[in-house]
Design a protein around this nucleic acid. Structure first.
Length: 498
RNA sequence: GGGCGGGUAACAAAGUGGCUAUGUGGCGGACUGCAGAUCCGCAUACGAGGGUUCAAAUCCCUCUCCGCCCUCCA
């Protein structure tokens, strides 16, 4: 199956055809940097990270550009309130926002162009637009004339007259049509200002994306994306500007990410329910948050809640358990030897088939417009089938286990799973274990986690032998409290960090 | 008013003209000293009404309800 993408422009799923063979060039509208990154940003950039990863998996060389809007009304307002320079202010938040997303485990784009560093190119594009008759100057401002651009409305599926009927926008004294939008804004006191053929001023919002995308990717490029909210007017205007200026096509596929809600409500400043990434990370493992995103299709609006994260965590743990189980089963081998089918037992052949099914189904799901919920379901199918298989075989073939593990890791990586955890400090666990061991009358200054756990489990095993279930259960509970889960199996007790 | 997208079991969330989605939760069983993990089994679905079809939750029509966008927003 070939990769299909739902294109907002045509409102259909289309086969993906790259502009340049085996390359994928993607531009995503980035953050306006005047406050910390929130979970809505996270959801959108998770989606594009996943999309980029899947293209890489498919063998594409990806160029991913995500702009930083660092010149904007809200930034200026916030900076003025604090009495600092607007560009310094936005530089500070650029750093903070990108770090928030780093901490969430979302991989960075390849290029983060800033509006403030692309002004000359924007002025050039505005000049082209005006020269070709699509823009006009009006008292130091420059506007785009939507009536001149025949295709205006093609992305959002609206005609100009439709827009007019429900218009609630300010006509604007200098505009010829209420839907005309600013390409260049005349300088006002207290604002960052650049010189231009129309006098001092600053760029309008929409022009930066038309300019930066074409500057870094060339036209046309493959995918242009952003949050659902940007479809109109932002993306509509971007198309108008770029295609008016160049006369050619802009982006081939438009992708829009469904907006996240919080406890069933739209997330907004006025409702006061904005959840910052920083705050969320205080309580939740980033992998759980990312996996929560993966469980909803990128075009649907997921509803965020603590309950949802709790459920996500439980499911994710099952996947991790299988991963650990397979790791244990194939720990003696470094790499897979070629698997000779004719030499396999029935059970082994069955396991191999489970893995092959998993591969086919996972890729099919992802090829179908990045259907991550279905892809996740194939992971669970794989988990269930593997668990059963491993249980049925007394001594599973290590090569096949390794093959299954590698497949799981490879697909997990596309969904951003299994990233190395950030320095969990063992020292605190060591300390707690030493104390617990002391409580049961043994002293140790051993600082090796495995050794300490071995001591604890031996203590418990002795209690179990003399059927002292109270001590045995206490030890199990106390270990759980300090972060270790104990399971008694036929081959003895095993532990894992919670 | 215009545009877009939805209504699936307790909840979340895919899919689809006939074949178990999946996860969390619930019930029963195996295993266990108990628990946990794991496995097996069970229950609860496709907003309403028409139509097409051998067969529709899936296609068509009508109705209804919900969300988002049309103002800054990922």
């Amino acid at each position: 199956m070939t990769l299909q993408i739902y294109n907002t422009l045509t409102r259909k799923k289309e086969n993906f055809n790259a502009v340049e063979k085996k390359k994928m060039k993607m531009y995503v509208c980035g953050m306006t940097v005047y406050s910390d990154a929130h979970i809505g940003h996270a959801r959108t950039y998770f989606a594009f990270d996943m999309i980029r990863r899947y293209f890489e998996f498919k063998g594409y060389k990806v160029t991913y550009v995500q702009n930083i809007t660092d010149v904007d009304d809200k930034i200026i307002a916030a900076a003025n309130k604090e009495g600092v320079n607007a560009l310094e202010y936005s530089a500070r938040f650029t750093d903070r926002c990108l770090k928030d997303l780093d901490n969430l485990g979302i991989r960075r784009a390849d290029i983060y162009p800033k509006a403030s560093e692309t002004i000359p190119e924007m002025i050039d594009m505005i000049k082209d637009i005006v020269e070709k008759g699509y823009g006009y100057e009006s008292d130091g401002d420059v506007y785009f004339s939507v009536e001149k651009f025949e295709d205006y409305g093609k992305l959002s599926g609206q005609k100009l007259e439709d827009l007019m009927s429900g218009a609630r926008i300010d006509p604007g004294e200098n505009k010829r049509n209420p839907f005309d939008f600013a390409l260049w804004k005349k300088s006002k006191p207290g604002e960052p200002t650049w010189d231009s053929p129309w006098g001092p001023g600053r760029p309008g919002w929409h022009i930066e994306c038309s300019t930066m995308s074409s500057k870094y990717l060339g036209l046309p490029f493959d995918i242009h994306g952003g949050g659902m909210d940007l479809r109109f007017p932002h993306h509509e205007n971007e198309i108008a500007q770029a295609e008016a200026a160049t006369g050619g096509a802009f982006a081939n596929y438009w992708m829009h990410i469904g907006l996240l809600t919080v406890n069933g409500e739209k997330m907004s400043k006025s409702l006061g329910n904005i959840i910052n990434v920083k705050d969320l990370l205080l309580k939740w493992d980033p992998e759980i948050i990312r996996f929560f995103f993966a469980q909803a299709h990128y075009r649907s609006p997921p509803d965020f809640s603590e309950k949802a994260l709790e459920n996500t965590e439980k499911g994710l743990t099952r996947i991790h358990r299988l991963k650990e189980r397979l790791e244990e089963l194939c720990k003696d081998i470094d790499s897979i030897e070629s698997i000779k089918k004719e030499k396999l037992t029935d059970d082994e052949r069955k396991f191999l088939q489970i893995i092959e099914d998993f591969k086919a189904k996972f890729e099919n799901a992802m090829d179908d417009d990045f259907n991550t919920p279905e892809a996740v379901a194939t992971i669970y199918d794989f988990v269930n089938a593997s668990n059963k298989c491993v249980e049925d075989c007394s001594n599973p073939n290590q090569n096949i286990c390794k093959y299954g593990l590698q497949t799981l890791l490879e697909f997990g990586k596309i969904l951003t799973l299994f990233q190395p955890k950030k320095g969990t400090d063992d020292a605190i666990f060591v300390k707690k274990l030493q104390l617990l061991i002391g409580k049961y009358g043994k002293e140790t200054d051993d600082e090796d986690l495995d050794n300490l756990m071995k001591i604890m489990l031996t203590l418990r095993q002795e209690a179990r032998k003399r059927k002292d279930w109270i001590i045995a259960d206490n030890i199990r509970n106390e270990l759980r409290e300090i972060g270790f889960e104990i399971q008694d199996t036929a081959d003895g007790s095993v532990w894992r960090k919670i």
